[in-house]
Amino acid sequence: MKKGLFFIGAAMSLTLLLSGCGNGDSAKEEAETETSNEQVIVEDNEEKETVDIETDNGSQVIAAHDFYEPFTGNMDHIHGIGYAGNQNAIFFAAHDGVKVYENGEWFKTKDFNNDYMGFTPVDKGFYTSGHPGAGVNLPNPLGLKRSYDDGQTLEDLAMEGQSDFHAMGVGYYNHAIYLLNEYQNPTLDLGFFVSKDDGQTWNEISTADLGGHILNIAVHPTNEDTVALTTEAGVYLSEDAGESFTLLTTNKQGISVHFSEDTLWYGAYGNEPELIKYSLESGSGEEIALPKMKQDAVMYFAQNPQNEAELVFSTINGDVYLSNNQGETWQLLVKQGKLQD
């Protein structure tokens, strides 16, 4: 399955297709999707002006973990980022397993390298969907799963072997789950649903007024009734568990969403990419200066729950940027999937 992003500006019209795997996609189909994406994405990025930054993240948990090893390869098709397990380490979900950036070093899982979709870090680990990796003996698709041991094992919560959830959000501390089900199964019809008991029961949410296909979902870390999502029509916020939504943007494509306690961070695209820090209390938004980006946008975003000055985002074209000063400066960690020195 492919998801389309339609960026419409006064001076240009750009269509970027995001690769994804539908239920039962074969490796051949996946490869064809990736090739197609390479053909349609306009790679016209100028050299970005960035600065090197130093981070002081304390102890190196992942570096000492026997399930992880140093990583020096390419990281393509990121499907979620964040601070899993409330650690000072950034987790990235990709087609070939979890990658982690910790204190200036990269690591990857030694095995159990699943194709994670809907990857959402929480305080105890991460929730995810997707497909089993090569040699992994799990049903395909994975359904709804979680890991509380840095990805060494996956606990089945619901719909194993039934569905693959590309758009999913989970509250960092409350673990309320909001997801888009795009394949009818014995548990859920097609639609947008919420579960507040780890997938045991579900309530459907109307998407009639959301202006298009849901791309990304975020849930407030402590208030399980506050959820944000993005569609082609913009960025939407609900504070009543989806009973009603408020459109926060005008004439912009909604792309990424992320909550901290008092703030909704969102990425959008109008004539150019933007990152907004939206106050939940005042309802006002502050634009955060982005590094030089051309025909690209903020696809996934996260803030370190232990250090609010530390921000990270990945882009549609496969770049990753890190800031340790609330976005005043940015360090380029990955450029079009290639790790930077």
Rank of each mutant, 00 (worst) to 15 (best):
S195R: 02
S238L: 02
E182V: 08
T201E: 07
G191A: 05
I214R: 07
V227Q: 14
A233C: 12
A228T: 10
G212W: 11
L237M: 03
D198Q: 10
A208G: 04
N216V: 12
T231G: 10
S206H: 01
Q200F: 04
F192I: 03
I205D: 01
L180D: 15
D198K: 04
E239Q: 05
E204Q: 06
K196G: 04
I205C: 08
N223K: 14
N181E: 09
N216F: 01
T187K: 07
S195D: 03
N181D: 13
N181Q: 08
F192K: 06
D189V: 01
Q200R: 12
T230S: 15
Y236V: 01
Q200Y: 06
A218V: 08
Q184H: 10
N181S: 11
N223P: 09
N223V: 15
Y178F: 12
S206P: 07
F192E: 03
V227C: 13
D198N: 10
E232Q: 13
D225A: 13
Q200S: 07
T201R: 02
V194T: 07
L237I: 01
A233I: 01
S206F: 04
F193Y: 15
L215V: 06
N185R: 13
V194C: 05
S238A: 13
D189Q: 11
L190P: 07
T226D: 11
T207W: 04
P186N: 02
P186C: 03
T226A: 11
I177K: 02
F192A: 05
F192Y: 14
A208V: 10
Q184Y: 02
T201H: 02
Y178K: 06
A218W: 00
T201I: 00
E232R: 04
L180K: 15
G212H: 08
A228F: 02
I217R: 07
Y183S: 14
L229Q: 14
I205F: 09
T187Q: 08
